[in-house]
């Protein structure tokens, strides 16, 4: 078997992968903005408007974008598969933080209702 020719990676390949992941991270951000609109209404409806976790809502909106940028930075010198892997891990961590924020918001509401 002869030695294989090295694969060519065009810069546009990285841009396409980054764009696809940007859509996924963007969806996370849109969901977080929707949460930031709806969650305060639930708290107000329950009469615990003083306990609205604004810090959590702001963090939830900001973090997907931050993760995306950090993943691009970490994978900047890697080949395409490595970049995609790092971005996928970042997307997974973003999903984990969404679930954590959901649980925290639930616990804060329960604590405020019990007080």
């Amino acid at each position: 078997m002869s030695a294989r020719e090295p694969r060519e990676e065009r810069p546009s390949d990285s841009w396409i992968v980054a764009l696809l992941f940007a859509l996924a991270f963007g969806y996370d951000t849109v969901e977080a903005i929707a949460n930031a609109e709806q969650l305060p209404l639930l708290y107000v409806g329950a009469g615990i408007e003083g306990a609205i976790p604004w810090w959590l809502l702001v963090a939830q909106v900001a973090l997907p974008g931050i993760f995306f940028v950090v993943a691009l930075f970490v994978g900047r010198r890697m080949r395409l598969v490595g970049k995609a892997g790092i971005l996928l891990v970042a997307l997974g961590v973003s999903a984990q933080l969404s679930l954590l924020a959901e649980q925290l918001a639930r616990q804060i509401a329960i604590t405020a209702l019990g007080a």
Partner: peptide, 24 residues
């Protein structure tokens, strides 16, 4: 569907992190 996809990503993230570190 998107919520469940997010849950799936959250579940595989620890192993994915381990694998990516080992390879990269």
């Amino acid at each position: 569907a998107m919520y469940q996809l997010g849950e799936l990503l959250a579940v595989i993230a620890p192993l994915l992190w381990w694998f990516c570190v080992g390879r990269l």
